[in-house]
Simulated assay, not measured.
Amino acid sequence: MNILKINKRLTITSSLLLFSVVSFSQNKFTIKGQLSPEINGKKVLLSYKNNGVSVEDSTKAEMGKFTFKGLIGDPAYARISVDPPAITTMQNVKSLDVRDFFIDAGEILITGSAGAKTAVIKGGKTQADYQRRFELYKPVQARVDSLNTLIAGYKEKGDNKAMDAARLEMNAEFAKTGKIDSNFIKDNPNSFLSLDIWRTKHRGTLRSNFEPEFKRFSPEVRNTFAGREIQAKFDLAKKLAPGQPAPEFKLKDTAGKEISLSSLRGKNVFVCFYTPDFMNYDAFTFNLGRINRALKDKNTVMITVYYSYADRPDSYWMETIKRSNFNWINLSDIGGVNNAGSVSPTAKAYGLTYYTLPNALLIGEDGKILASQLKLNDTGLGQELAQLIK
């Protein structure tokens, strides 16, 4: 079990893509590999993201040598794979010859006497920082590996008490990684890796009270594509803060009739943007029903706006409404978000992506936002919102 991989996602996909990739400078990089001659003729696959855009490149090794050339904006978290299988499964994952690293502009060297997994990778500042972080994780990794061996033995013996104790210790080891990362970020404000760890920690949710943390990064880091993108999210959060006018939207209901937010002026509006594709969806729908009951006598209109992949039929939306018991206004913005981020005017106005759904706001009779960034899993949310309505 690799701790660093648990704490670091391969792809950086929580992007709103508010900036064009081409609007940021692109710099050349070259990756030169020299591994065992035994990989001669085998495919070498390179995968990474260039300012939010997925890139894959491949070549064949010749006597262990291979070369990649390309353009990169921000430093990019990448993976090199030697002779990758067509499909990765639980059965073959341990045998994969892969290595994770960071691509910086300039030359990167991947060298070793065997495959990619044990190679030494030298590149720019971000890769050096990544290696420093890896060294900090080593004691935790060693203990986790030892505990995994112990747990396997306890399981075979049927010693549940010892197994539970070992798992508790493992949880404590995992907790240490958070402290390691917090200290790394604090000590390295001019490192792009620090920013990458920080945004991964917060995933797709960047609440406005996180902005002071972001401001601690150096101007150089904050002016990267990722930094400018994060700042844009904070700016959008300010526009959606209580007291601000709610952005207009016009979407169709189940009968094909277009309904605008402005047409509901004079009523309070609880609007929830959602997709049915997330865990705990049933608990979410149950809580929406609870919120509806709390607000029904408060001159409030309840609206749910459906998001899904564009290739799904409309019937799936209707089935979702029925299954979820959404007996209020149901609107659709199918295709409004995709894996890249916001697509439709409504999604862009409210900063919606698959990583920020579900998302809800309470809008007052005057069209101004009463509450945003709502915790939709809070069973007392309905009563709290009811108290906000005069």
Rank of each mutant, 00 (worst) to 15 (best):
D297H: 14
D297A: 15
N299Y: 06
V301C: 05
V301Y: 09
I303W: 08
I303E: 01
T304R: 01
T304C: 07
V305N: 02
Y306P: 00
Y306S: 02
Y306K: 01
Y306I: 02
Y307I: 04
Y307V: 05
Y307E: 07
Y309Q: 14
A310N: 11
A310T: 10
D311Q: 12
R312E: 09
R312W: 05
R312A: 10
R312Y: 08
D314Q: 12
S315C: 04
W317C: 00
W317H: 10
W317F: 12
M318W: 10
M318H: 15
E319T: 12
E319W: 04
T320D: 15
K322T: 13
R323H: 11
N325T: 14
N325L: 11
F326P: 00
N327R: 11
W328D: 02
W328S: 03
I329H: 09
I329K: 09
N330Q: 15
N330L: 06
L331Q: 03
L331I: 08
S332V: 13
G336M: 07
G336T: 10
V337T: 15
N338T: 07
N338K: 08
N338W: 05
N339S: 14
N339K: 13
A340D: 12
A340K: 13
A340Y: 08
A340H: 11
S342F: 04
S342W: 03
P345A: 11
P345H: 09
P345L: 06
T346D: 03
A347P: 04
A347S: 15
A347G: 13
A347N: 07
K348V: 09
A349K: 08
G351K: 07
G351A: 08
L352G: 03
L352K: 07
L352N: 04
L352D: 03
Y354S: 12
Y354A: 10
N359G: 03
N359W: 05
A360T: 07
A360C: 09
A360D: 05
L361K: 02
I363N: 02
I363D: 00
I363V: 14
G364Y: 03
D366P: 12
G367W: 02
G367T: 04
G367S: 11
K368I: 05
A371G: 02
S372D: 12
Q373Y: 08
L374S: 11
K375H: 15
L376G: 09
N377I: 06
D378G: 09
D378C: 05
T379E: 11
T379V: 09
G380I: 03
L381H: 10
G382N: 12
G382I: 08
Q383R: 13
Q383W: 10
L385N: 02
A386K: 08
Q387N: 11
L388E: 01
I389E: 00
I389R: 01
